[in-house]
Amino acid sequence: MRVLRAKTRTLYDLLPQPVLDRVLATGTSRGFKDGQIIQQRGDDRQGISVLTSGQIVAGNAGADGSFLVSALLRPGETFGEFTVMAGLPHTHTLWSQGETTITFIKGSLATRLMDEEPAFAHALLTIALLRNHELLEFLDAQRRLTLPIRIAQLLLTSVDSKARADTVECRQEDLAVTLGVSRVATGKALKRLEQDGMVELGYGRIDLPDVQGLIAKVEADDPLFMLPRA
């Protein structure tokens, strides 16, 4: 399964190397095999974890037993901050995607690090605000935009915004899981984009024959939508 998500800044981007080295040295490293559960929803162990290699998928089981994916974490991202800062339990079950390594920092040690290394506290706040912004944008899109446009936005996060054409390696099921909609609804939305010449559906991939046209289509429905053009 592939979860599509725009790249955001992480501890690797936000911390000076000496501070990052100290943060990682303070914690305990642990490896996970592909598909191994890292934590369960409701766990109340206090601490901050840093994903140092691999990927982590976050989600929860639905009422019908299906698993609803909420996010994909990449190296340098963190989780568990609110167990330390707010005394709240974990909200999601996490499992590894591929060989994965995390560094766990106990709550008391994480608190001391934030006091002694203001850059660490600032980085955690920045990451929290970036996630909050991402969540608000996701909720806004669910309420305001059509499913074809939401799918187009998601596909565009995975391609070069300056390209004339590109390909996203993913299945229709991956899009459905990421957006929390049915496979049938996703298929219908993709067919509409295909009829408009915006996508071409292949086996395990979706071709974008006119990236700039797709960007223009999205921006016409959502003028505030932006992609990095660097």
Score class of each variant (00 low, 15 high):
residue 193 L to T: 10
residue 169 E to W: 00
residue 176 A to K: 01
residue 190 L to I: 10
residue 193 L to D: 04
residue 192 R to L: 13
residue 165 A to G: 07
residue 174 D to M: 07
residue 148 P to G: 09
residue 198 M to C: 08
residue 109 L to Q: 12
residue 92 H to M: 10
residue 199 V to N: 04
residue 121 A to N: 07
residue 128 A to Q: 05
residue 139 L to G: 01
residue 195 Q to T: 14
residue 136 L to W: 04
residue 114 M to Q: 13
residue 163 A to V: 03
residue 147 L to S: 04
residue 106 K to E: 14
residue 91 T to W: 00
residue 117 E to T: 03
residue 188 K to G: 02
residue 142 Q to I: 03
residue 184 V to T: 15
residue 120 F to P: 07
residue 119 A to E: 14
residue 166 D to R: 12
residue 108 S to L: 12
residue 161 S to P: 05
residue 142 Q to R: 13
residue 143 R to W: 02
residue 111 T to I: 06
residue 98 G to I: 10
residue 108 S to G: 10
residue 149 I to P: 06
residue 112 R to Y: 02
residue 147 L to K: 08
residue 182 S to W: 00
residue 154 L to N: 01
residue 151 I to T: 09
residue 98 G to R: 09
residue 182 S to H: 03
residue 112 R to S: 15
residue 203 Y to N: 11
residue 135 L to R: 11
residue 117 E to N: 11
residue 164 R to P: 01
residue 151 I to W: 00
residue 100 T to S: 13
residue 111 T to R: 08
residue 103 T to Y: 02
residue 131 R to Y: 14
residue 101 T to E: 15
residue 135 L to W: 05
residue 171 R to N: 05
residue 158 S to Y: 02
residue 128 A to I: 00
residue 145 L to N: 05
residue 158 S to I: 06
residue 111 T to A: 13
residue 122 H to Q: 09
residue 146 T to W: 00
residue 140 D to Y: 07
residue 186 T to Y: 02
residue 190 L to M: 11
residue 140 D to K: 04
residue 150 R to M: 02
residue 203 Y to G: 00
residue 106 K to C: 02
residue 194 E to P: 00
residue 140 D to F: 05
residue 187 G to Y: 11
residue 105 I to K: 04
residue 90 H to M: 13
residue 128 A to G: 07
residue 95 W to P: 04
residue 189 A to R: 07
residue 113 L to D: 01
residue 140 D to H: 09
residue 186 T to I: 06
residue 191 K to I: 09
residue 100 T to A: 14
residue 107 G to Q: 06
residue 133 H to Q: 14
residue 161 S to C: 08
residue 122 H to S: 10
residue 166 D to N: 11
residue 136 L to C: 06
residue 156 L to P: 13
residue 141 A to E: 11
residue 106 K to Q: 11
residue 136 L to S: 12
residue 155 L to M: 05
residue 198 M to I: 08
residue 145 L to F: 06
residue 196 D to W: 11
residue 162 K to A: 09
residue 142 Q to T: 03
residue 93 T to M: 08
residue 190 L to P: 07
residue 126 T to H: 08
residue 147 L to V: 08
residue 125 L to H: 02
residue 113 L to P: 11
residue 117 E to R: 15
